[in-house]
Amino acid sequence: MSAPGASEPKLGKKDFVSDQDVRWCPGCGDYAILSQVQKVLPELGIPRERFVFVSGIGCSSRFPYYVNTYGFHSIHGRAPAIATGLKASRPELSVWIVTGDGDALSIGGNHVIHLLRRNLDVNVLLFNNKIYGLTKGQYSPTSEVGKITKSTPIGSVDHPFDPIALALGAEASFVARSVDVETRHLQDIVRRAHEHRGTSFVEILQNCNVFNDGAFADVTEKATKADHTLVLEHGKPLVFGKDRDRGIRLRNFQPEVVQLGDGVTEADLLVHDETNPALAYLIARLGPPDFPTPIGVFTAVERPCYDAALGQQIASARAKNPPDLRALLNRGDTWTVS
C-alpha cells in the first residue's frame, strides 16, 4: 500500500471527522481531545485507511465513532487485547487505543500492564477524569481517598493508582501526560506517541464537567496553572512557576521544591532525561499538594516490539522451512494399508 502521493489531495482535519453526531455532554473535555487528535492525524503521512481506533467502554470509548477511520468500539477493558491481536497480525496498521481511567485501570488493568510489557507498537490515549462518567458518577481507581461520590457517600477509602507510575512499573517504553485544554502540548504529545516505536502510553487529564468538575483546575486555570504545572523537556532542568523561578532539586534522594536565587541556580536542579526510567519514576511521584503536576514525556526508550519480533519469527520459519501441508499431515509414523 502506498503513502499518499503528490497527486492525492492532502488530507485535512475534516477527513477524519465521521458523519456521526458527537454525543458527549456539552463542555466535556473529550471534545478538545478529539479535535486535537483529528488535527494531528492528517499530518502523520499515513493513508487514512491504515488508522484503526480501538476502544473499550466508557465515555472516552465512544471516540472511534467520531473519527472517520477504521474503528472498533469493543467491551469494557478489553481494547488492549483486541488491539494486540490486530497489531500482531497486521503490523503495518497504525493502531490507537482510546480508554479511560475505569476502562484501563480497573476492569482492564491486567491487559494494560501486559500490553506495556510486550511493547506492541500501538498508542494508548488514557482519558483520566478520576470518575466514572457513563455510569453516572461513581469513584474510579484514580479518585482520591475521601472522594464523595454516589457509591461513596461518606468518602472513598480506596487508595488510587497513579497511571504514569503504573505504566512505568509495567515497563512501558513511552510514558507521557498532557491536558485536554493544552491544545498545542497535547498535539505535540500525540505526535510523539505516534513517532515512538513501541507502546506509547499517554495519560490525558480530562475534565468531566458533570460528575467531577474542576478535578484538574490547578493545572487548567489561567491563574494557577503556571505555578502548578511542571512542563518536562528532555535535557532541561525541572523549572516551573509563573516567573520560572522555582525548580525541583534532589536532596538525600528526596525531591524538593526550591526557590531559584539566593545561591540556588538551575545547575542545582534535576535535569530531565527521557532515557532514564528511574528518573521518570521519581518525577512520576511528584504532584499536589507539595509539588506541581508534571506534564510531558516522562520516558521514551527503545525496546524490541512484540509485533515485530513475532513477525520476524514467522518470516524466518517460512524461509527455513517453506509451508508444505501435505508433508505436515503425513508427519511422524505413517503406514499404508493396501
Partner: peptide
C-alpha cells in the same frame, strides 16, 4: 508451525486470548 503463517499469542488471561483473536479477525486472519 509458524512457517504456515501461524501466529500464536499466549495471552495474559482467557479474556485476552479470545480478545486478541477477535482483533486478528477484524484484521482478516
Amino acid at each position: 508451525l509458524k512457517q504456515f503463517d501461524v501466529y500464536t499469542f499466549q495471552a495474559e488471561d482467557e479474556i485476552a486470548g479470545v480478545g486478541a483473536a477477535l482483533g486478528a479477525a477484524f484484521g482478516g486472519a
